[in-house]
Design a protein around this nucleic acid. Structure first.
Lengths: 224, 224
DNA sequence: CGTGCCATTGAGCCGGTTCAAAGCCGGTGG
DNA sequence: CCACCGGCTTTGAACCGGCTCAATGGCACG
């Protein structure tokens, strides 16, 4: 970054913030003045239905930008919650527009990020809409594994994955019971095993094959 | 627009183009040098699985931007096809970056569009993942109706909707048969009826209630 | 030592799927 | 002018993947 960019980021960045597990960061309908970047910890992005059903849209990992929607549109259309303790970098939404005027390459990155999230949701939609429970699950696990691997969180053959089975079930539109049973099958077949907040994958290739994962690692994400 | 903007758009816009029904506009994996805006006609955005299953991601209506993903990322991750004859405005992808440098407000619009599409996919994911067939269908029909209404295509109580039931089924992750039977129920209940390429809604309020649609009309979309 | 959250497992059921067949066009060629 | 064909919609019937209900067990915490 240039000096000028640094100076701008100084103004754009408000500060840092640490939150407890379970803290709601942004809520549906809110018009928050803040945008965050996750520095550490894990979170969930989800939508609720009036009767309590929940759709998890994505898991939030370190490096992810949070609240771009609220930044660029009027208001938030989904909720964001910290699953573990999280450290966040806080940005001032009001400076977003001046970023577009003065730092086009950063602006371009933002479009890239939004576009990349759209791409992910398209994949998720395809998984939920078309794939069987086993296929979706394998898709989700391999996707998560690849991303955490790219974040350099791989230790041995396992990555941290501190969520409940209910969270994954809500992400895949499956029931908790069926998610549990399908996970058990993957474990029995010695392909992948998720316990105690860690996901171990012993046969990634087969996992991706089951999940009908289309080639290639996920694209690298510019940091904001 | 200012003169300067007009001059730029002149360079950015390559020309116009008309395509036949069924023409593929962009394909998965392609790295197309073009970005389009639909001027008239209808299209589909979808992903295919290796075994032929298809997930429709969204319907493309006049005014929609096509191919932003290919523009901003390396390559396309879904297919786009013209359902009816379409008239398109063609832009030069290579000028995209200079747009960011010289026209920040247009750049902002692009992020807005990408973000808005992400928002839509999140809603779709929630419909497919959590809602019953009847709920999803009502959601989809009311969504489509609202959008076409906003495009000023409402005549009487009906809007054009020139797709096959199979297309809608693939969008909602339902079988063709069940989609048909669920549509029949909405027709019997005198709520909405879709035939001969037109969707008539006689009780929009009830349709949105069944579909668990959260308030408000969809946000207006900046034209590119 | 109780209490609550989460994972696990069994049993029965149901919303939605698959299979199959028939009806309804509009287009085409004889 | 009519017979035929292909794409789409409609309807009936049987089946099944995944859901719901229910109970148990492990573990952390007060």
């Amino acid at each position: 970054m240039t000096d000028q960019e640094l100076a701008f980021m100084e103004r754009f960045k408000i500060g840092e913030m640490t939150v407890e597990p379970g803290t709601p960061l942004l809520s549906e309908g809110a018009n928050s003045p803040q945008i965050f970047t996750a520095l550490s910890g894990f979170g969930l992005r989800f939508k609720m239905l009036p009767d309590g059903r929940r759709q998890v849209l994505s898991m939030i990992f370190p490096g992810d930008l949070i609240g771009l929607q609220a930044g660029v549109m009027r208001e938030m259309t989904h909720n964001i919650e910290a699953t573990t303790a999280m450290k966040l970098c806080v940005f001032n939404r009001n400076e977003l527009w001046s970023l577009y005027k003065t730092h086009p390459s950063r602006a371009y990155d933002l479009t890239w990020i939004a576009s990349s999230e759209e791409r992910f949701l398209g994949e998720a939609l395809t998984a939920i809409g078309q794939k069987s429970a086993m296929e979706s699950l394998a898709w989700a696990l391999s996707r998560v594994f690849r991303r955490l691997e790219a974040l350099d969180m791989l230790e041995g053959n396992s990555v941290p994955l501190p969520y409940r089975q209910q969270d994954l079930a809500d992400a895949l539109g499956l029931s908790l019971v069926h998610t549990n049973k399908t996970l058990a099958k993957l474990r029995e077949r010695q392909i992948a095993s998720w316990a105690d907040g860690r996901l171990s994958v012993s046969d990634l290739e087969q996992l991706e094959e089951i999940g009908l994962v289309e080639g290639g690692p996920p694209p690298a994400r510019p940091l904001m």
